[in-house]
């Protein structure tokens, strides 16, 4: 009897834990939505905003690739031959910006849409304005500087098949070219840089997948 009395607290705790675990398993199965690799309505609307309603986009491949500060989360290809990339970039917060960057048939930036931003409201979120984003329209790979040594390639963005490989491949990305001038948002330098990093990654990734 003494033993049972001593065991009661442990058994009670065990029962409560078991019931909790069962409940959580049930609710998790009920609510889990796997959206990885799917073109969600939100992405569709953003694409329509850049390209109009006529072009239909599909995920043609989902290579993981990126630089130190940004990575490609999804690559999309339109039936008209245009490419768009969803890029997660570090702003003030790590992975604070999720941007959809659409490129035209020449590989220049056609439009940028902020899909998700966890930047500071009123400061970092100001990057989502036509004035700021408009600066990058027309930005191309030509504006990313040429390699310094023959061994070093311009296209430092590489694509990986697994997360482990991606970590190994996160090399440094091209420096800001002297020829391209843009203005950061006052008080939101890191968020502004995050957008520019994403833009540079998009045009480099285009070169990688389109020209090879």
């Amino acid at each position: 009897m003494k033993f049972i009395k001593k065991a009661i607290p442990a058994i009670t705790l065990l029962i409560i834990c078991a019931v909790s675990a069962l409940l959580l398993v049930f609710v998790h199965d009920l609510t889990a939505v796997d959206e990885a690799g799917n073109v969600t309505p939100e992405i569709k609307a953003a694409l329509a905003g850049i390209y109009g309603d006529t072009e239909e986009f599909t995920v043609y491949d989902t290579p993981l690739g990126g630089s130190e500060t940004a990575y490609v989360n999804m690559s999309l290809r339109g039936d008209g031959g245009d490419y768009a990339f969803i890029i997660v970039s570090n702003g003030y917060n790590k992975e604070g910006l999720t941007l959809l960057i659409g490129l035209d048939s020449a590989g220049a930036v056609k439009g940028i849409v902020t899909l998700e931003s966890s930047e500071t409201p009123g400061l970092g979120t100001k990057t989502d304005s036509p004035e700021f984003m408009g600066q990058f329209i027309g930005f191309t790979i030509d504006e990313v500087p040429a390699p310094v040594t023959p061994d070093e390639t311009v296209y430092k963005v590489r694509f990986a098949k697994s997360k482990e490989e991606l970590e190994a491949l996160k090399a440094s990305q091209p420096e800001v070219p002297a020829s391209f001038e843009w203005d950061a948002i006052t008080g939101a330098t890191l968020s502004s840089n995050g957008v520019f990093d994403a833009v540079k990654l998009a045009v480099t990734a285009y070169r990688e997948v389109h020209i090879g």
């Binding site: 009670t12 705790l13 409560i16 834990c17 998790h28």
Partner: peptide
């Protein structure tokens, strides 16, 4: 064992809220 029990109950509901809001 009241405190561990309270924590288990509380974290269960927190995780539920997390799942529901995410979905």
């Amino acid at each position: 064992v009241r405190l561990p029990c309270f924590i288990v109950v509380i974290t269960t509901f927190v995780t539920l809220t997390d799942f529901i809001l995410k979905a």
